[in-house]
């Protein structure tokens, strides 16, 4: 992930070229790297070794198991006793042909895209807002993290409580406003929207924290210079903050994507992916196949899970390529 690593330097460049002229161009250091003598590899790998060993120890086995599961025809019996026949891509074919595949794909895309967009936008707006210093700003920002202290089972159940068709607070509030009840969780046309709303709520603190840290890393001199040049707050945001925040934004969005793709507890607790698969994503489908019924279908469940991993990796590659391009340009 060298490319990632370099990203903050590279993209700081626009700031350096801009009107700000800080005494030292932070970008210069990034540019200078090729001239820097390479540290001995043993030192680099010495620092890296613990985490690589850790990855191998704790991630390789589960990942290997998941791949193995998806390539064999497991029954509950062969899961316990062994001897499941190797079936190659059979489970994947089963999954592709399943009538749930197309809707699940669509819901996964919508769920992920809409969640990401709103989480990021809200997180950024809040980060900018809270990085101004006013009374209670740090305390309030800290309070924004409270939703994270709750186990998902509790926060998702609370949402499900609030969105209940008959006794939920949301519908009674709408009722006072003269709007008829909405079947948030029980109507196929609303269930996906409901789980997206809850997921956005849960994702905002994450975006807020990361983007806020990113904002703090932007040198104040840049704002100062922009202000001297007569830029108003809006212009300062778009000309200084937003471009300089791009690297942090990229990491935030990528991580957000990875985490959103695998969200399943919220959806499962709120709607079970239903009614009639109307809020089923790949993550909940995988869970339902593997664990959601009395008779687990491990093979297809693992296959769906692996499809998700591949999707995330594809986005990871796109991200890395984009970074490379940005650097070389």
């Amino acid at each position: 992930m060298n490319t990632t690593a370099q990203m903050p330097d590279a993209s700081a460049a626009p700031g350096g070229d801009g009107p700000a002229k800080p005494r030292r161009d932070p970008a210069g250091t990034g540019r200078g790297t090729p001239r820097r003598p390479r540290s001995p590899q043993w030192a680099a790998w010495g620092f890296l070794a613990p985490v690589v060993a850790y990855l191998g120890l704790f991630y390789a086995y589960p990942l290997y198991r998941n791949i193995d599961l998806s390539l064999r025809d497991y029954t509950v019996r062969s899961f316990v006793q062994g001897g499941a026949p190797f079936t190659g891509l059979g489970n994947y074919r089963t999954v592709f042909r399943d009538p749930t595949f197309a809707p699940a794909l669509e819901h996964t895309v919508v769920f992920t895209a809409v969640s990401l967009l709103f989480q990021y936008a809200a997180g950024l707006a809040l980060a900018v807002f809270f990085s101004q210093h006013f009374r209670l700003s740090t305390t309030l920002r800290a309070l924004f993290l409270v939703p994270w202290l709750l186990p998902l089972i509790v926060s998702a159940s609370t949402w499900s409580w609030m969105l209940n068709s008959d006794s939920g607070i949301v519908n009674s509030t709408l009722g006072w406003a003269g709007i008829g009840p909405v079947n948030w969780l029980t109507s196929p046309s609303w269930s996906l929207a409901s789980v997206i709303i809850a997921n956005i709520w849960i994702g905002i603190p994450f975006n807020l924290v990361l983007l806020h840290s990113g904002l703090q890393a932007i040198p104040a001199t840049l704002y100062e210079a922009a202000a001297l040049d007569g830029a108003n707050a809006w212009q300062r945001f778009w000309k200084v903050t937003f471009p300089l925040l791009r690297p942090v934004s990229a990491v935030t969005l990528l991580l957000g994507l990875v985490y959103t793709l695998k969200v399943f507890d919220i959806i499962w607790i709120m709607t079970k992916g239903g009614p009639s698969d109307s809020s089923t994503t790949f993550a909940t489908w995988s869970y339902r196949l593997g664990f959601g019924t009395l008779l687990p279908q491990f093979g297809p469940g693992a296959a769906v899970g692996n499809i998700l991993v591949v999707i995330a990796l594809a986005f990871g590659l796109v991200y890395i390529r984009a970074q490379r391009k940005q650097m070389s340009s």
Binding site: R65, Y74, A84, F291, G305
Partner: peptide, 11 residues
Amino acid sequence: AVVVAASTAAA
């Protein structure tokens, strides 16, 4: 969470 299945399977 549960767990089961998936991973460890191993025969």
